[in-house]
Protein backbone atom coordinates (compact mmCIF):
# COMPACT_ATOMS: atom_id res chain seq x y z
CA UNK A 1 0.00 0.00 0.00
CA UNK A 2 2.75 2.41 1.00
CA UNK A 3 4.63 1.33 -2.10
CA UNK A 4 1.62 2.21 -4.25
CA UNK A 5 1.48 5.66 -2.66
CA UNK A 6 5.20 6.20 -3.21
CA UNK A 7 4.85 5.24 -6.86
CA UNK A 8 1.80 7.50 -7.11
CA UNK A 9 3.72 10.47 -5.70
CA UNK A 10 6.64 9.91 -8.05
CA UNK A 11 4.48 9.48 -11.17
CA UNK A 12 2.28 12.44 -10.25
CA UNK A 13 5.29 14.68 -9.74
CA UNK A 14 6.71 13.49 -13.08
CA UNK A 15 3.74 15.07 -14.86
CA UNK A 16 4.83 18.47 -13.65
CA UNK A 17 8.54 17.97 -14.30
CA UNK A 18 8.22 17.17 -17.99
CA UNK A 19 6.74 19.67 -20.46
CA UNK A 20 4.38 17.00 -21.83
CA UNK A 21 2.03 17.48 -18.88
CA UNK A 22 1.71 21.21 -19.42
CA UNK A 23 1.27 20.81 -23.17
CA UNK A 24 -1.55 18.31 -22.68
CA UNK A 25 -3.30 20.61 -20.16
CA UNK A 26 -2.99 23.53 -22.59
CA UNK A 27 -4.43 21.57 -25.49
CA UNK A 28 -7.27 20.34 -23.33
CA UNK A 29 -8.15 23.82 -22.08
CA UNK A 30 -7.86 25.34 -25.55
CA UNK A 31 -10.12 22.75 -27.18
CA UNK A 32 -12.76 22.74 -24.45
CA UNK A 33 -12.64 26.51 -24.01
CA UNK A 34 -12.98 27.20 -27.71
CA UNK A 35 -15.89 24.85 -28.29
CA UNK A 36 -17.63 25.99 -25.13
CA UNK A 37 -17.46 29.75 -25.61
CA UNK A 38 -18.02 29.85 -29.39
CA UNK A 39 -21.45 28.24 -28.99
CA UNK A 40 -22.25 29.55 -25.52
CA UNK A 41 -23.66 32.91 -26.57
CA UNK A 42 -25.68 31.43 -29.43
CA UNK A 43 -27.92 29.54 -26.99
CA UNK A 44 -27.80 32.22 -24.31
CA UNK A 45 -28.52 29.63 -21.62
CA UNK A 46 -26.63 29.74 -18.35
CA UNK A 47 -25.41 26.16 -18.20
CA UNK A 48 -22.33 24.10 -18.99
CA UNK A 49 -24.14 21.55 -21.13
CA UNK A 50 -22.15 22.12 -24.30
CA UNK A 51 -18.93 21.73 -22.31
CA UNK A 52 -20.01 18.45 -20.73
CA UNK A 53 -21.53 17.12 -23.96
CA UNK A 54 -18.21 17.35 -25.67
CA UNK A 55 -16.18 16.05 -22.73
CA UNK A 56 -16.32 12.32 -23.60
CA UNK A 57 -14.72 13.12 -26.97
CA UNK A 58 -12.06 15.49 -25.63
CA UNK A 59 -11.21 13.01 -22.88
CA UNK A 60 -10.90 10.21 -25.44
CA UNK A 61 -8.40 12.37 -27.28
CA UNK A 62 -6.42 13.73 -24.34
CA UNK A 63 -6.33 11.07 -21.63
CA UNK A 64 -4.51 8.42 -23.69
CA UNK A 65 -1.81 11.04 -24.26
CA UNK A 66 -1.57 11.51 -20.50
CA UNK A 67 -1.29 7.80 -19.76
CA UNK A 68 0.74 6.56 -22.74
CA UNK A 69 4.12 6.87 -21.04
CA UNK A 70 3.21 5.12 -17.80
CA UNK A 71 4.31 1.63 -18.75
CA UNK A 72 5.50 1.95 -22.34
CA UNK A 73 8.32 4.33 -21.45
CA UNK A 74 9.55 2.15 -18.60
CA UNK A 75 9.46 -0.98 -20.74
CA UNK A 76 11.29 0.85 -23.52
CA UNK A 77 14.09 2.23 -21.33
CA UNK A 78 14.36 -0.91 -19.20
CA UNK A 79 13.59 0.81 -15.92
CA UNK A 80 10.58 -1.53 -15.79
CA UNK A 81 12.96 -4.32 -14.78
CA UNK A 82 14.43 -2.18 -12.04
CA UNK A 83 10.99 -1.19 -10.77
CA UNK A 84 9.69 -4.75 -10.66
CA UNK A 85 12.71 -6.08 -8.80
CA UNK A 86 12.04 -3.66 -5.98
CA UNK A 87 9.83 -5.05 -3.22
CA UNK A 88 6.55 -4.06 -4.89
CA UNK A 89 3.64 -6.12 -6.17
CA UNK A 90 2.06 -5.75 -9.59
CA UNK A 91 -0.97 -4.24 -7.88
CA UNK A 92 1.18 -1.56 -6.23
CA UNK A 93 2.61 -0.56 -9.60
CA UNK A 94 -0.73 -0.55 -11.43
CA UNK A 95 -2.53 1.28 -8.61
CA UNK A 96 0.22 3.89 -8.24
CA UNK A 97 0.32 4.67 -11.93
CA UNK A 98 -3.46 4.71 -12.27
CA UNK A 99 -3.92 7.05 -9.30
CA UNK A 100 -1.26 9.39 -10.66
CA UNK A 101 -2.91 9.69 -14.08
CA UNK A 102 -6.44 9.96 -12.67
CA UNK A 103 -5.29 12.71 -10.30
CA UNK A 104 -3.58 14.50 -13.15
CA UNK A 105 -6.85 14.39 -15.09
CA UNK A 106 -8.58 15.95 -12.08
CA UNK A 107 -5.94 18.70 -12.00
CA UNK A 108 -6.42 19.22 -15.73
CA UNK A 109 -10.15 19.60 -15.15
CA UNK A 110 -9.79 22.11 -12.30
CA UNK A 111 -9.19 25.26 -14.41
CA UNK A 112 -12.49 24.62 -16.24
CA UNK A 113 -14.25 25.59 -13.00
CA UNK A 114 -13.48 29.08 -14.22
CA UNK A 115 -15.94 28.49 -17.07
CA UNK A 116 -18.60 27.71 -14.48
CA UNK A 117 -17.62 30.77 -12.47
CA UNK A 118 -17.82 33.05 -15.49
CA UNK A 119 -21.20 31.60 -16.51
CA UNK A 120 -22.48 32.13 -12.95
CA UNK A 121 -21.26 35.71 -13.22
CA UNK A 122 -23.21 36.35 -16.43
CA UNK A 123 -26.43 34.48 -15.67
CA UNK A 124 -28.17 32.38 -13.08
CA UNK A 125 -26.35 29.03 -13.04
CA UNK A 126 -28.04 25.89 -11.75
CA UNK A 127 -25.23 24.33 -9.72
CA UNK A 128 -26.82 20.86 -9.45
CA UNK A 129 -26.05 19.66 -12.99
CA UNK A 130 -22.65 21.37 -12.80
CA UNK A 131 -21.63 19.43 -9.69
CA UNK A 132 -23.05 16.26 -11.23
CA UNK A 133 -21.14 17.00 -14.40
CA UNK A 134 -17.87 17.36 -12.53
CA UNK A 135 -18.50 14.17 -10.57
CA UNK A 136 -19.22 12.40 -13.85
CA UNK A 137 -16.16 13.94 -15.45
CA UNK A 138 -13.91 12.70 -12.65
CA UNK A 139 -15.41 9.22 -12.87
CA UNK A 140 -15.11 9.12 -16.63
CA UNK A 141 -11.57 10.50 -16.35
CA UNK A 142 -10.72 7.67 -13.96
CA UNK A 143 -12.25 5.07 -16.29
CA UNK A 144 -10.37 6.43 -19.31
CA UNK A 145 -7.15 6.59 -17.25
CA UNK A 146 -7.55 2.90 -16.45
CA UNK A 147 -8.02 2.21 -20.17
CA UNK A 148 -4.90 4.26 -20.90
CA UNK A 149 -2.89 2.41 -18.25
CA UNK A 150 -3.91 -0.86 -19.86
CA UNK A 151 -3.04 0.38 -23.36
CA UNK A 152 0.36 1.48 -22.10
CA UNK A 153 1.06 -1.85 -20.44
CA UNK A 154 0.69 -3.87 -23.64
CA UNK A 155 3.44 -2.15 -25.65
CA UNK A 156 6.85 -0.55 -25.42
CA UNK A 157 5.91 2.08 -27.97
CA UNK A 158 4.22 5.17 -26.54
CA UNK A 159 2.55 6.10 -29.82
CA UNK A 160 1.00 2.66 -30.11
CA UNK A 161 -0.14 2.97 -26.48
CA UNK A 162 -1.72 6.33 -27.21
CA UNK A 163 -3.54 5.15 -30.33
CA UNK A 164 -4.80 1.93 -28.74
CA UNK A 165 -6.03 3.98 -25.77
CA UNK A 166 -7.80 6.43 -28.07
CA UNK A 167 -9.45 3.63 -30.06
CA UNK A 168 -10.85 2.01 -26.91
CA UNK A 169 -11.99 5.34 -25.44
CA UNK A 170 -13.59 6.52 -28.69
CA UNK A 171 -15.17 3.09 -29.04
CA UNK A 172 -16.75 3.34 -25.61
CA UNK A 173 -17.89 6.90 -26.32
CA UNK A 174 -19.35 6.40 -29.76
CA UNK A 175 -20.36 2.76 -29.57
CA UNK A 176 -24.08 3.29 -29.03
CA UNK A 177 -24.29 5.90 -31.76
CA UNK A 178 -23.03 3.51 -34.41
CA UNK A 179 -25.38 0.59 -33.88
CA UNK A 180 -28.75 2.32 -34.08
CA UNK A 181 -29.78 0.29 -37.13
CA UNK A 182 -29.26 -3.03 -35.31
CA UNK A 183 -32.11 -4.86 -33.53
CA UNK A 184 -33.35 -3.38 -30.27
CA UNK A 185 -31.56 -5.78 -27.93
CA UNK A 186 -28.15 -4.96 -29.34
CA UNK A 187 -28.83 -1.25 -29.11
CA UNK A 188 -29.83 -1.73 -25.47
CA UNK A 189 -26.66 -3.60 -24.62
CA UNK A 190 -24.44 -1.17 -26.47
CA UNK A 191 -26.14 1.77 -24.82
CA UNK A 192 -25.32 0.21 -21.48
CA UNK A 193 -21.72 -0.37 -22.53
CA UNK A 194 -21.24 3.17 -23.81
CA UNK A 195 -19.43 5.47 -21.42
CA UNK A 196 -21.19 8.54 -22.79
CA UNK A 197 -24.64 7.32 -21.72
CA UNK A 198 -23.58 6.92 -18.11
CA UNK A 199 -21.74 10.18 -18.13
CA UNK A 200 -24.79 12.00 -19.52
CA UNK A 201 -26.98 10.53 -16.76
CA UNK A 202 -24.67 11.79 -14.04
CA UNK A 203 -24.10 15.17 -15.70
CA UNK A 204 -27.86 15.76 -15.71
CA UNK A 205 -27.50 15.67 -11.95
CA UNK A 206 -29.01 12.18 -11.58
CA UNK A 207 -26.68 10.04 -9.53
CA UNK A 208 -27.63 6.42 -10.02
CA UNK A 209 -25.63 3.54 -8.53
CA UNK A 210 -25.78 1.77 -11.89
CA UNK A 211 -23.76 4.56 -13.47
CA UNK A 212 -21.30 4.62 -10.60
CA UNK A 213 -21.00 0.86 -10.83
CA UNK A 214 -20.39 1.10 -14.56
CA UNK A 215 -17.36 3.38 -14.16
CA UNK A 216 -16.06 1.37 -11.21
CA UNK A 217 -16.23 -1.82 -13.26
CA UNK A 218 -14.45 -0.23 -16.25
CA UNK A 219 -11.67 0.86 -13.90
CA UNK A 220 -11.48 -2.55 -12.28
CA UNK A 221 -11.58 -4.45 -15.57
CA UNK A 222 -8.77 -2.52 -17.25
CA UNK A 223 -6.54 -2.37 -14.16
CA UNK A 224 -7.01 -6.09 -13.77
CA UNK A 225 -6.14 -6.45 -17.46
CA UNK A 226 -2.90 -4.51 -16.89
CA UNK A 227 -2.06 -6.82 -14.03
CA UNK A 228 -2.62 -9.84 -16.27
CA UNK A 229 -0.40 -8.31 -18.96
CA UNK A 230 2.35 -7.72 -16.39
CA UNK A 231 2.04 -11.32 -15.24
CA UNK A 232 2.31 -12.52 -18.84
CA UNK A 233 5.47 -10.45 -19.31
CA UNK A 234 7.24 -12.65 -16.77
Amino acid sequence: MNQALTIFRKEFRDYFISPVGYIVVCIFLLVTGWFFFTTFFLFSEANLRSFFNLLPLTFSLVIPAVTMKLFAEEIHTGSYEMLLTLPVTHNDVVAGKFLASASFVAVMLAPTLLYAASVAFIGRLDWGPVLGGYLGAVLMGAAFSAIGVFASSITRNQIVACIVGMVICFGLTLFDKMVFFFPGKIVEVSTYLAAATHFENISKGIIDTRDLLYFASVVFLFLYGSNVVMQARK
Binding site: S18, T77, M82, T85
Partner: peptide, 17 residues
Protein backbone atom coordinates in the same frame (compact mmCIF):
# COMPACT_ATOMS: atom_id res chain seq x y z
CA UNK B 1 12.88 -12.33 -1.44
CA UNK B 2 12.84 -8.97 -3.21
CA UNK B 3 13.48 -7.31 0.14
CA UNK B 4 16.65 -9.39 0.59
CA UNK B 5 18.07 -8.63 -2.83
CA UNK B 6 19.62 -5.52 -4.25
CA UNK B 7 19.68 -5.85 -8.02
CA UNK B 8 21.34 -3.81 -10.73
CA UNK B 9 20.12 -4.74 -14.21
CA UNK B 10 22.47 -4.52 -17.16
CA UNK B 11 23.41 -0.96 -18.21
CA UNK B 12 21.65 0.53 -15.16
CA UNK B 13 18.25 1.55 -16.53
CA UNK B 14 17.37 4.33 -14.07
CA UNK B 15 14.86 7.15 -14.45
CA UNK B 16 16.70 9.67 -16.58
CA UNK B 17 14.59 12.66 -15.65
Amino acid sequence: IKKLIGYLPESAPLYHN
